[in-house]
Amino acid sequence: MIKEKLNQLLEWMVVFLLSIMLLSVLWGVVSRYIFANQSSWTDELARFMLIWVSILGAAYISGKNEHIAIDLLPQSLSIRTKLKLEILCAIIISVFVFVVFLIGGSRYVYISFKLGQASAALFLPMGYVYLVMPIAGVIVIYYKIFDAIHANRKLKLIE
């Protein structure tokens, strides 16, 4: 139930952020070619939205298990071994995301705020731009824990 609500929330967030990005790029083109003076903030906003859309989109796809995968090995395994492999992959991904996105991303956000980094055109604190990393990290870890628990339940039913 929570997973479906989170999927729905992420879908709407990605659509909303992509819409902002589209409007920003559209305004940049209009201001450049019609008014002969491009707004300086449109490029920066579009870049920031691309970062958020990409990372949140990756988290969303991870939760739906629709990411690119080479599935030659799992296809040749028994159901029991395949479920064990799913649990192992979920654990490995969770550890990686914990180290890179949660620990590394949180440090990056903290340092950005501590140093007072701001973007050139929008004067937005860069910590807000990088905040997507720990947010997405929590989401991916939740999805992978959910997947591992689900695979473990299936494994217990088989045994």
Score class of each variant (00 low, 15 high):
residue 1 M to S: 14
residue 1 M to E: 12
residue 2 I to C: 04
residue 5 K to G: 13
residue 6 L to W: 06
residue 8 Q to I: 10
residue 8 Q to G: 10
residue 12 W to M: 13
residue 12 W to V: 13
residue 13 M to S: 11
residue 15 V to G: 15
residue 16 F to D: 03
residue 16 F to T: 12
residue 19 S to Q: 14
residue 20 I to F: 14
residue 21 M to E: 15
residue 22 L to Y: 13
residue 23 L to K: 14
residue 24 S to Q: 09
residue 25 V to H: 09
residue 25 V to L: 15
residue 25 V to C: 11
residue 28 G to V: 04
residue 28 G to K: 10
residue 29 V to R: 12
residue 29 V to N: 08
residue 30 V to T: 11
residue 31 S to G: 06
residue 31 S to A: 08
residue 32 R to K: 15
residue 32 R to N: 07
residue 33 Y to G: 03
residue 33 Y to W: 10
residue 35 F to V: 07
residue 35 F to H: 09
residue 36 A to R: 12
residue 37 N to Q: 12
residue 38 Q to K: 11
residue 40 S to R: 15
residue 40 S to D: 10
residue 42 T to H: 13
residue 43 D to T: 14
residue 44 E to G: 08
residue 45 L to V: 13
residue 45 L to D: 11
residue 46 A to S: 14
residue 46 A to E: 05
residue 47 R to E: 08
residue 51 I to L: 10
residue 51 I to M: 06
residue 53 V to F: 04
residue 55 I to S: 06
residue 55 I to N: 07
residue 55 I to C: 07
residue 56 L to C: 05
residue 56 L to K: 03
residue 57 G to N: 04
residue 58 A to G: 08
residue 59 A to R: 08
residue 61 I to A: 11
residue 61 I to Q: 10
residue 61 I to P: 07
residue 62 S to N: 13
residue 64 K to N: 10
residue 65 N to Q: 14
residue 65 N to S: 14
residue 68 I to Q: 09
residue 69 A to F: 08
residue 73 L to I: 03
residue 76 S to V: 05
residue 79 I to L: 12
residue 80 R to F: 00
residue 83 L to K: 03
residue 86 E to M: 03
residue 87 I to Y: 00
residue 87 I to F: 00
residue 88 L to G: 02
residue 88 L to W: 00
residue 88 L to M: 02
residue 89 C to R: 15
residue 91 I to L: 02
residue 93 I to C: 03
residue 93 I to R: 01
residue 94 S to D: 00
residue 94 S to A: 02
residue 95 V to M: 00
residue 97 V to P: 00
residue 98 F to A: 04
residue 100 V to N: 00
residue 101 F to K: 06
residue 102 L to P: 01
residue 102 L to A: 00
residue 103 I to S: 05
residue 103 I to H: 07
residue 105 G to R: 04
residue 105 G to P: 01
residue 107 R to K: 11
residue 108 Y to Q: 14
residue 110 Y to H: 11
residue 112 S to W: 02
residue 115 L to Q: 13
residue 116 G to E: 07
residue 116 G to S: 08
residue 118 A to V: 13
residue 121 A to Q: 11
residue 121 A to D: 12
residue 122 L to R: 09
residue 123 F to M: 14
residue 123 F to D: 13
residue 125 P to C: 08
residue 126 M to Q: 12
residue 127 G to H: 06
residue 127 G to E: 03
residue 129 V to R: 03
residue 130 Y to Q: 06
residue 131 L to M: 12
residue 131 L to D: 05
residue 132 V to A: 07
residue 133 M to D: 06
residue 134 P to E: 02
residue 135 I to V: 11
residue 138 V to P: 05
residue 139 I to H: 09
residue 142 Y to N: 04
residue 142 Y to S: 03
residue 143 Y to M: 06
residue 143 Y to S: 07
residue 145 I to D: 01
residue 145 I to L: 05
residue 145 I to Y: 00
residue 147 D to L: 03
residue 150 H to A: 14
residue 150 H to V: 02
residue 151 A to Q: 06
residue 153 R to C: 04
residue 154 K to C: 08
residue 156 K to Q: 11
residue 157 L to G: 11
